[in-house]
Design a protein around this nucleic acid. Sequence first.
DNA 1: GTGGTCTAGACCACT
DNA 2: GTGGTCTAGACCACG
Lengths: 127, 127, 127, 127
Amino acid sequence: MEWNLDSERPVYLQLIEQIQAGIVSGQYQPGDKLPSVRDLAAQAMVNPNTMQKALAELERTGLVFSQRTSGRYITTDTAMIQQLRQRQAMEHVAAFGERMRLLGYETEEAISLIRQADALAKPKEEI
Amino acid sequence: MEWNLDSERPVYLQLIEQIQAGIVSGQYQPGDKLPSVRDLAAQAMVNPNTMQKALAELERTGLVFSQRTSGRYITTDTAMIQQLRQRQAMEHVAAFGERMRLLGYETEEAISLIRQADALAKPKEEI
Amino acid sequence: MEWNLDSERPVYLQLIEQIQAGIVSGQYQPGDKLPSVRDLAAQAMVNPNTMQKALAELERTGLVFSQRTSGRYITTDTAMIQQLRQRQAMEHVAAFGERMRLLGYETEEAISLIRQADALAKPKEEI
Amino acid sequence: MEWNLDSERPVYLQLIEQIQAGIVSGQYQPGDKLPSVRDLAAQAMVNPNTMQKALAELERTGLVFSQRTSGRYITTDTAMIQQLRQRQAMEHVAAFGERMRLLGYETEEAISLIRQADALAKPKEEI
DNA sequence: GTGGTCTAGACCACT
DNA sequence: GTGGTCTAGACCACG
């Protein structure tokens, strides 16, 4: 699990997003057991209270459920996960489009920049 | 000038971004006079002090300058503006790419979503 | 920490100077924890926001840094501190020289006045 | 007359100081006629109102007097001028000493810096 | 309790 | 009316 936190936004919100991303991307599979709050907090280098707050929120939305004594698990409702994945993707797409529009970029220009960035990041090896 | 503020991030940072966007997209031209702090604050429906903070920050970076008693003006350094536009676009592209990657989307899938969203937003009139 | 504020110049600038002086003179050592904003504001008898503004500025220049929840600390970059000390001294010397020159004093006359003032301030005990 | 204005302090106070310096240094002699407010304002590149305010203040302290119809003149009270010169010199000396003390400089170190700066500014020609 | 942000309302210097 | 500064008092995220 990668943990990238900046101090621009509330940490607990960023934790929620990144755990969601882990679930949605399949890194955590439906039904998987999550590490303990303490371990997750240690990984992300945040205070356990903050991680606790993030997990409580994920539980509230049903993406995670806790088995009284044995820990927290990823939901087995794969439909919910798929739905979340699509909703988040659409949100990112909309936000990105809006930001590029504000900068005065056309859709096709933005797409061309994405392709450029992608080419730089993962240069396809020749033959 | 459009003002879209959410409460997820500090308001003054959002103000900075949106004023930058206004400059960078050419809505405010180099050398243009900005509305007064009070007017901008009224437009954005924020406290004048908050707008002042945003403008002070923009002044620090050199994007606007203030003439002691006559008001604030957009820098005439068009190179700086161009550079900012490109830098911001690259940042948005990188952030978007990273977020989609975390959700498990390939670059081409992401691009296809952008095209879909764009088609929905501005449906091309049929013949 | 001494706090001498007059109303001739912006208070926050004077706060910046005096905190800098505290750092540069060794009263605050590199790595030391600063008192909280509220405490410093109470000491200096200014509004916490004003002190906050001064500290934000010092943070911008890198002379202090803030640890998200535990407080603010003096930079451990002793070279930066030394450099600041010398730069400020030179500025004061230049400004003083210029002012005395405008009053029509030669350098040696000015120096002789400094010695007189010093003798008055700390009268050397006789034998 | 040199006019060096910064925007850190009220302009009219700086004007007062610099006119005082001109009088005290002998650049303006006792009884001399001052240029018109308009001319002085033009020289200093400030608004005539601001210059007017500075002159009114100088008149209040007696350093300048106005002859109803013919303009403003420097006082002929040379004792007052001498006294002002000495008072200002002492203030500068005290302020300088205090600032250097805050930076942790001893009187003799400060004097040595003054000599260095002086040597740099006006290198004595050899032979 | 810590830093950070925000609002509301005031005053000042300058044009 | 302009930018700039300041106070007072509030709320938030975090530990």
